[in-house]
Amino acid sequence: MNQKQQIILDLNEIFTDIIDEGEIMLNPETTANDIDGWDSLNHIQILAAIEKKYTFKFTLTEIQNLKNIDDLTNIIVQKTSA
């Protein structure tokens, strides 16, 4: 399994825990529109949980440019490899 696939598995867990409406399976193309409960409030919690898990902080620009799960995993890969 490559690093990005592993990250998506971790994200599945975070999303499932926070949205708390059953098992969530993400793929690189998933966007907020595809997931019930991925609203602005949960989004804040999700980003905070990712920051905690991978011990880095998103910049405001990174957050603004997020479109889908692929963007998110790319940032995580980039920030954790540095």
Partner: peptide, 14 residues
């Protein structure tokens, strides 16, 4: 501060 900018929220989740 980031939550304040993004969502007008004051307190950190923690």
């Amino acid at each position: 501060f980031k939550n304040y900018i993004k969502a007008d929220m004051v307190f950190s989740l923690e």
